[in-house]
Design a protein around this nucleic acid. Structure first.
Lengths: 164, 164
DNA sequence: TATTGTTATACTCTATAACTATA
DNA sequence: TATAGTTATAGAGTATAACAATA
């Protein structure tokens, strides 16, 4: 390569390669919110509510504080969310006998049924969203997401654990 | 495998593989918003504003309508956003002489300087965010994101083009 | 009549601080 | 005093409808 000539399409260096990835994530998140939200309307759930039910279904009963920590939701914001789900009879809250400050959150039978139905709907939405990818690429993408979100540093994590 | 025995950790099938990918995207987006937002505070920009400047810098002058379409921002929400950037002298708006309904948006010199500085900051933030991944994996992840967001179906796209 | 930009408004999600009841 | 949950409130981001100017 001559020093005076600059290539029309220069190969991206390492810094350029990751540049803009944040904006791409936002765009994908918006599209995901739209598709997922639409798929959840039949269940009458919004996606943070689905996240709560999904986590309770996967991990079992848990105290509110731990639930908030796991989902990176502010405990204060979790309250109304759980209230709504409880009013609909999808989960139950009961004070822990050993420490009555802690409230144990648990799915009801109706909650388990609801999350099962909602997951079926979101599965379809996610399938459409990942349409451009092959089965192997979907596996890759999901694996990368899992690794990237395993130790996320958001507001909740930074305030407490101090790992950020 | 015996028909009565069920494996403790059954291999995920194709449907299970993509299940939950929406929630993972939301989690990553939140972490990304936090990191990117923090990196942009010095520039006094919020991430949708950075997205506007970034797009203008990359693609050149453009009408408001096209800008809104490209960034999947509602035209009505774009107004205040551009107002703020214009007040700070980072971009200029002028009616197109050929069609005075259309407003041509263009970066100023200060705007180009600002986006350059902001991009430097976000690059670092993105680098931290992608920390768990190798250079090759970052390339893969970014490529997958580009393909997934190339034909996103969000509210804006569904309302108009009708591709969804 | 259709389109571009604009205003007004409401809703979702998130963040912060102050309060209560338990420990 | 410290912690779990709660209340109140403010802010960012997004969606919708109605409007003025222009075509």
């Amino acid at each position: 390569m001559s020093p005076v000539e600059t290539p029309l399409k220069p190969e991206a260096d390492d810094a350029t390669l990751v540049s803009g990835v944040g904006l791409l994530i936002f765009r994908l998140a918006r599209a995901s919110a739209w598709r997922l939200g639409r798929s959840l309307t039949d269940s009458g759930l919004r996606w943070p509510e689905f996240a709560v039910l999904h986590h309770l279904d996967a991990e079992g009963p848990i105290a509110q504080r731990e639930l908030a920590l796991a989902l990176r939701i502010q405990p204060s914001n979790l309250v109304a969310l759980l209230d709504h789900l409880q009013e609909r009879g999808l989960l139950a809250r009961a004070p822990d006998p050993a420490d009555r400050r802690r409230h144990r959150v648990e799915l009801t039978v109706g909650g388990r049924r609801a999350v099962k139905r909602a997951r079926e709907a979101t599965r379809r939405a996610e399938g459409e969203m990942l349409g451009p990818l092959s089965a192997e690429e979907r596996r890759q993408f999901r694996a990368l997401l899992v690794r990237l979100t395993a130790h996320t540093c958001d507001r909740g994590a930074a305030g407490r654990g101090g790992r950020c």
